[in-house]
C-alpha cells in the first residue's frame, strides 16, 4: 500500500510528518483550551445562579450572624 518514495523518502515523510504533527498539536490545544474555558465559565455561572437563588437574608449576611 505504501508508495515507493525512492531516494527521497526521508524528505517526503519528514515533510508530511511535521505537517500532521503540527496540525494535530493545533487541534489538541484548541480543544483543550475550549474545554477548560467552558468548564470555568460553567462553574462561575453556577456560582452566580446559586447566589441569586439564595434567600435575601443569607445574601445580606453570608455568615448568618445578623
Amino acid at each position: 500500500m505504501m508508495p515507493d518514495l525512492g531516494s527521497y523518502a526521508v524528505y517526503v515523510l519528514s515533510a508530511w510528518g511535521a505537517t500532521l504533527a503540527l496540525l494535530a498539536a493545533l487541534i489538541l490545544l484548541t480543544l483543550r483550551r475550549n474545554a477548560a474555558v467552558k468548564r470555568a465559565l460553567d462553574e462561575i455561572e453556577a456560582r452566580r445562579d446559586a447566589a441569586r437563588a439564595a434567600p435575601p437574608d443569607t445574601k445580606a449576611d453570608p455568615h448568618g450572624q445578623a
Binding site: P3, L5, G6, Y8, V12, A15, W16, T19
Partner: peptide
C-alpha cells in the same frame, strides 16, 4: 500521497505539494 505518480523531474518529492 497514495494515488498520484511521481513527477518526471522532482520524483516523489512532488507529494510535498499537497501539504
Amino acid at each position: 500521497f497514495f494515488f498520484t505518480p511521481d513527477d518526471f523531474r522532482q520524483g516523489s518529492t512532488v507529494k510535498i505539494i499537497y501539504v
